[in-house]
Write a protein that binds this DNA or RNA. Structure first.
Length: 509
RNA sequence: GCCGCGUUGGUCAAGGGGUUAAGACGCCUCCCUUUCACGGAGGAAUCACGGGUUCGAAUCCCGUACGCGGUACCA
């Protein structure tokens, strides 16, 4: 009987940058759907017009594209169950709200924001920490339960502002099976009469998820753990609407926590601790503030994805590096953790480094090209690839390729003279002059030949080769870093190597 | 406050009645390399606490503590 095609959705609100946790939710959705041969849909939950942010939806789509987690159906490409923006689905919700009212599962409430506020003040004064519009309170408010049918009809007729609230039953047990947590039970007396349809005619999240998941034939609903407390409302709604047998299976994902202290990881933590929290750079159109993203920080999308999937899931094999295809094969909800995981930026960097190591030079070179262009450097594709090949093993971010390899493209701007000078001797100076003069005799200007002639001459002069290598490195690179010196010299070529030696020699004297 | 969900090294975590309690990140020591990095070798948890159940518990049960989440006409 369970032959329905698997359909999952990611349903973000277009309110700003896409958080790490959001991407992980997408990822789990995606992996599950692809593994089951199902479909992944993107639905934009823009029912709160006051929080709508220009450009956020396009930004989310771009993030998914970068991560390689593209939806099968979305607001742009459409699909059989569109539209995929809740604001465009507005007319669809009212009828369901009314259906609920007619069946007695919901009611109209005419309380103004001021009246609600007053009620809360009174309750708080009585020692009620978080006043709820519940079974007892609703009896004291203005709604279709306390008003006569005639009064209600008249108010509605006049177009009085009103909302539709769910009529939570008294003392009933609502339970459902969460794919990650097992059976979860709530008592309806502890849940309040949540608003289903707002005064502006827009549904709240509670009504919208249920209606849309039903209409879009969603079979499995993954979302963050912060939604667990409102799950009973959704379960009840599925039942009240008469759709119980079509209710998706729920999975409430553990939260991603801040590295220090406790609590959900927030954008602020990233700013404070110096790491990104958003997938890509996000520029707030109102304030103009720019928040750094993983992409711009130099992460490879595969590494980002791999790092995220390991936060709350692992396949038990001890392996940690997985391609998206492997993840699709290996992912299983049974192995998703219940507890939240603290985000560890060091580990994230390690994943990125692992991926940089296995990424081919051509792709890395392509990523370096914009940097070179910006600096006005032109180099052949081959040369750039050669350089990335030489320096990539010491890069944690793709942006570091330049930092570790700049001296291949330009003369070092500073030379670490102080590291050489104290031990510098006229004999060493003479060594370099003679050695460089001998380059012409070299059959081929390559690393092996260079190293050999270097050692021969050093030995002949009674100087330990090791004492000459560091000065040579500093001549070429400007400091104590970089790949093997003779390899650098080979890459630089004869002319440039001689030029750098001649430039540095006088500085050391 | 109330409701819900959690709790294995600093972090991610495997293990689900009998193990020397995997592995990875980070940290420390050493090797390689007269740079850095990569790569090797090694070091450091007794499983939140307290009770049970059992010959035997990190593993099962019950409490407690702690943490987190929710408690909006936000999602």
């Amino acid at each position: 009987m369970e032959q329905k095609k698997v359909r999952v959705r990611f349903a973000p609100s277009p309110t700003g940058g896409l958080h790490l946790g959001g991407v992980r939710t997408v990822l789990f959705n995606y992996l599950f759907a692809k593994q089951q041969g199902g479909e992944f849909v993107l639905r934009i939950e823009d029912t709160d017009q006051t929080r709508f942010v220009e450009g956020a939806e396009e930004y989310i789509q771009e993030c998914l594209r970068w991560c390689g987690l593209e939806p099968d159906e979305d607001p742009v490409k459409g699909g059989p169950y569109g539209p995929y923006r809740q604001s465009e689905r507005k007319p669809m919700y009212r009828q369901y709200a009314e259906q609920l009212v007619n069946a007695g599962y919901a009611y109209y409430a005419f309380d103004s924001p001021e009246e609600l506020e007053a009620m809360r003040e009174v309750e708080k004064a009585k020692g009620n920490h978080a006043p709820q519009y519940n079974q007892t309170i609703r009896a004291t408010m203005r709604n279709s339960l306390t008003l006569s049918a005639a009064e209600t009809a008249e108010l509605l007729e006049k177009g009085a502002p009103h909302v539709v609230r769910i009529n939570m039953p008294v003392n009933e047990e609502v339970s459902f099976t969460d794919m990650i947590r097992g059976t979860v039970t709530f008592n309806t007396s502890t849940v309040d009469d949540k608003v289903l349809l707002k005064a502006d005619g827009m549904p709240t999240y509670h009504l919208a998820v249920v209606v849309d998941d039903y209409l879009m034939k969603i079979t499995h609903a993954f979302r963050g753990e912060e939604w667990l407390p409102s799950a009973p409302i959704h379960v009840l709604l599925w039942k009240y609407l008469g759709w119980e047998k079509d209710m998706p299976q729920w999975a409430h994902l553990p939260l991603i926590l801040k590295p220090d202290g406790n609590g959900k990881l927030s954008k602020r933590d990233g700013d404070r601790l110096g790491f990104p929290v958003y997938a890509m750079n996000w520029k707030d159109p109102k304030t103009g503030d720019l928040t750094k993203g993983f992409r711009e920080m130099g992460f490879l999308p595969e590494a980002f994805i791999n790092m995220l999937v390991m936060l709350g899931w692992n396949d038990g094999s001890g392996e940690e590096i997985f391609s998206l295809d492997e993840l699709i094969k290996r992912f299983s909800i049974d192995r998703v953790h219940k507890g939240g995981a603290k985000f560890d930026f060091d580990k994230a960097k390690w994943f990125n480094q692992q991926y940089i190591q296995k990424t081919d030079n051509a792709r890395l070179a392509a990523l370096l090209q914009p940097v070179l262009q910006e600096k006005g450097i032109t180099a052949t594709e081959d040369f750039v690839m050669k350089v990335t090949g030489l320096v990539k093993e010491r890069c944690q971010f793709v942006n570091e390729i330049w930092d570790h390899g700049f001296f291949f493209f330009q003369k070092p701007t500073t030379i670490d003279v102080d590291s050489v000078k104290p031990k510098w001797t006229p004999e060493k100076q003479q060594f370099f002059e003679e050695w460089a003069a001998g380059f012409a005799q070299l059959p081929d200007f390559n690393a092996v030949a260079l190293e050999e002639s270097f050692k021969q001459l050093a030995t002949a002069k009674g100087i330990k080769p090791g004492e000459l290598q560091m000065p040579f490195r500093i001549m070429l690179c400007g400091g104590k870093f970089g790949p093997q010196v003779f390899v650098i010299a080979e890459a630089l070529g004869k002319e440039e190597t001689i030029a750098r030696i001649q430039h540095a020699l006088p500085l050391f004297a």
